[in-house]
């Protein structure tokens, strides 16, 4: 099995999907000759041709809207938005069309597209390149929002997203595009959508996170373990629809929960998870649910970026707070 990075796993999954299904097309800015600014689509145009690996004009609304038209007419478009910071012109197409075409035509037309975008902070990128706004998309009825946290999950979840008969926003945490290598077999095996993955079992506190923050969260679990505290770590993976059952089962066991995300705090997806725990798991709780998040500020430029991002220390402290609650 080859050792690959997360972005290489994305590339492998794209090539696998294109090789398996001639209806799969890739479109976006610089995805063709250049192979994508992060190299996620490297080599695809050489292999599958210009007609299926499409360099689009520089217009994100067009990219998303074209993908809607393609998907409704029988193709399987995988559209790339170069950075999440530039995704907002596409929001109209996702909200007004992709997410509701099936509903508004009673299933006559459907929209099996995947919209990929790198997102998140921590790589000292220029302005508009570091935000995490996954909750904007998770709020939209009819969409799926999927976020991988490792090369293996990038491969398996992207294949699953491509196979899915409905629109998927697939957000790739670019901070971990290349920091970890993992053995990933290119066997075409998809992972299940709509379920959380339990990365580590524990009994004292449940740490819930997704994307790049799984790394800090695992480190926090290690630190807690050194202090004799057993933390369970859950990677939500598909944030919408939310697999609350797995989270509730864990909280029932541990009685404590800390939710970790890079995105701003108010109205972040942690708020939704916390609300659902309150609604259905209140009596399991031994302490209030804690959130460790980015602040309700504009994402600072990178001199202060590290102070914005949840740190291992902040996660550990929040876990201690739940354990110290009386």
């Amino acid at each position: 099995m080859p050792e690959v990075t997360l972005v290489e796993a994305v590339n492998t999954a794209l090539a696998r999907a294109m090789g398996t299904d001639e209806n799969v097309v890739v479109l976006g800015e610089d995805v063709g000759v250049n192979g994508g600014v992060f190299r996620a689509t490297a080599g695809l145009q050489e292999r599958f041709g210009e007609a299926r690996v499409i360099d689009t004009p520089l217009a994100e609304n067009l990219i998303a809207g074209t993908a809607v038209g393609m998907a409704a007419h029988g193709l399987k478009p995988i559209a790339e938005i170069q950075f999440m910071g530039f995704i907002y012109p596409a929001l109209d197409q996702l909200l007004s069309h992709a997410s509701r075409l099936r509903t508004r035509t009673r299933g006559r037309l459907t929209c099996p597209l995947v919209l990929r975008a790198p997102f998140g902070g921590g790589i000292h990128a220029p302005e508009h390149h570091s935000e995490s706004t996954e909750a904007l998309f998770a709020h939209i009825p009819g969409l799926r929002v999927v976020i991988p946290s490792s090369p293996a999950r990038a491969y398996g979840l992207l294949l699953a997203s491509i196979h899915d008969p409905d629109p998927v926003v697939f957000l790739e945490p670019k901070r971990i595009y290349r920091i970890v290598k993992q053995d990933v077999a290119d066997d075409g095996h998809a992972l299940p959508l709509d379920v959380c993955f339990v990365l580590r079992s524990g009994t004292d506190v449940t740490l819930v996170t997704w994307g790049a923050m799984t790394h800090e969260t695992i480190q926090a679990a290690d630190a807690l373990s050194s202090a004799g505290i057993s933390a369970e770590v859950i990677d939500v993976a598909t944030i919408k629809p939310l697999d609350i059952e797995t989270i509730l089962e864990s909280v029932e066991k541990t009685g404590r929960c800390v939710i970790v995300h890079e995105a701003a705090r108010s109205g972040g997806w942690g708020a939704e998870i916390s609300a659902q725990i309150m609604e259905r798991g209140l009596l399991s709780l031994l302490a209030p649910v804690q959130r460790v998040t980015g602040y309700d500020t504009v994402m600072p430029l990178f001199r202060l970026e590290d102070r914005y991002m949840p740190s291992v220390d902040r996660i550990v402290q929040a876990a201690h707070a739940t354990l110290g609650f009386e």
Binding site: M70, A72, H97
Partner: peptide, 8 residues
């Protein structure tokens, strides 16, 4: 934009 996708 959908028309572009359909025509494509």
């Amino acid at each position: 934009c959908h028309a572009v996708g359909v025509a494509y």
